[in-house]
Every structure is written in C-alpha cells, then in structure tokens.
Design a protein around this nucleic acid. Sequence first.
DNA 1: GCATGAATGATAGTATATTCTCATTATCAT
DNA 2: ATGATAATGAGAATATACTATCATTCATGC
Lengths: 123, 123
Amino acid sequence: MTKRDTRQRRAIRRVFLNAGRPLTREEVLEYGQEIVPSLGVATVYRNLNIMKGEGWLSEVELPGGGIRYELADRPHHHHFLCRSCDQAFDVHRCPDEVETLAPDGFEVDGHELILFGRCAACT
Amino acid sequence: MTKRDTRQRRAIRRVFLNAGRPLTREEVLEYGQEIVPSLGVATVYRNLNIMKGEGWLSEVELPGGGIRYELADRPHHHHFLCRSCDQAFDVHRCPDEVETLAPDGFEVDGHELILFGRCAACT
DNA sequence: GCATGAATGATAGTATATTCTCATTATCAT
DNA sequence: ATGATAATGAGAATATACTATCATTCATGC
C-alpha cells in the first residue's frame, strides 16, 4: 500500500483550494481544524512537506515571519502583505521590465515583488 | 556616563560603511573579527540591536535566511540576492508604477523588489 | 467484514538562534 | 593617571521551531 486519502489530508488540500492565497503553517492548522478538529501539528508539518515534495505546494518567503505555502501550479504572480492582519494575497499583475534593473555584470534569472499595505477587509 | 565608543562598536560601524550592502549577523561577525579578532557573538547581537534602536541600521528580510541589516539612511532602493554566494546587493533603480498593481480595494503604502541571479563576482 | 499497515496525534526529543550571566576589560571624565 | 562603570566575551540558559517516537486509529484491498 502506498498513499492513503485520509480525512486530514483532504482537509489540508481543501484549505488551500478555498484560501486562494499563501498560508502559514499556523493558518493551515487553524483552518484545517475547522474541518477536522482533531488535526494535530505533526500532521500538518508532515503533509506540507509531502505536498511540497510532490510538487503540489511551493514555499513562499515573505517578510515578517516564517515560510508560507501556496499551490504550485499558479502562473507567475506576486504578493501583497497586509500590515494589519498579516495575511498574504496574490497579485496577478507584474511589471515586466524589472529584470533589467540590476547593476552591470549581474545576471538576473528571477524576481519577487511584495506590496505592503492594508487589504480590502482591513481598509 | 552613557554610550562609549568602543573598538568593537567602531569595527561594526566600519564593516557596514565598507560593505555598502545588507549584511547578515554572521557576516558582521566575520568581517568585524578581521578588525577586532576577539569580537564575540553577544557583542554583535547587542550592538546590532542598539544601532537598530538608534535608527542607524534597519532590518531587511530577504528569502533564504535570517534578517540582514543595512544603513538606515539610504534612499529608496531594492535588493539583488546572488544564488551562488548568497550575498545581498543594493539595486538603485526602481520600477515606479508598481504600487498600482494591487487588486481593487487594497491600499498600497510600500513595496519591496528582490532580484535573483548571479552577482558580478560569481558570473 | 476483516486484516494489514499507513497515517495520525500527543508528547518527548532535538536543533538552533538569541539572550542572559558575570567576571574581566577598557573607555572616559576628572 | 586613576576610579567609576559601561561594555565585552565565554559559555550557560532560554526560547522556539521542527522532527521523532510510538501506541492507536482508520483507509484500503481482499
């Protein structure tokens, strides 16, 4: 036997599909427990690592805290970090000439843009 | 008596003035020990916190590791992170329309742009 | 429905980063 | 130069994040 489709695993997957934004491990635990109240930290850690290994989730590192996770299949996008509720959101528009901004002699192969402010709910 | 101008403190200040780029605590310790070999971690931690409190240094958080510190008086700029040597560099050019990219209802009051790639020395 | 063993969850254990302690050193006002 | 004491540095102590353990639960194939 290999991988089982447990209630906990389904709950964690559901949490990401519903959220549509990057989540901290704490948020995954909190929202997951709304579906499966007994959900424990170890299970969250285990499954986030498994899902990252499978390529279903990817890590996002934003200022002000630990790693967040998001669905890996999303097209190129950036993030908005709310200073009030500390939630991260996707920003789908992207300034395209950014990679020409580096000093001479620097080879750019990627970029990350983070906007800060107040989200729609906190305004 | 208040604040003393110690050899260690001068060394740490010198390190930042010479570097001209954001430094991790580890880098501060390493470069500081080239000036004052006996420099210890506790002193680095203490003085980084003091200098941040004085507003002389500010924190920068880039992906892939801990907090870095840089001189606080620098004008608006962004950062380049070398994937090879993991050093951070300043990028002084900035795409100016970025803050208009947020979704409707989101109030943007700041932004951070990080470029990834290989620095001039690692190319 | 039942047996198998993958997965869970409570908690112990581990790793690592940061701070604290305190004897010693060195700055600075005099 | 000297004394008062701020600052240092080695290592202990602490905090925190993450992983390992293991008895129990439950998803799956038959």
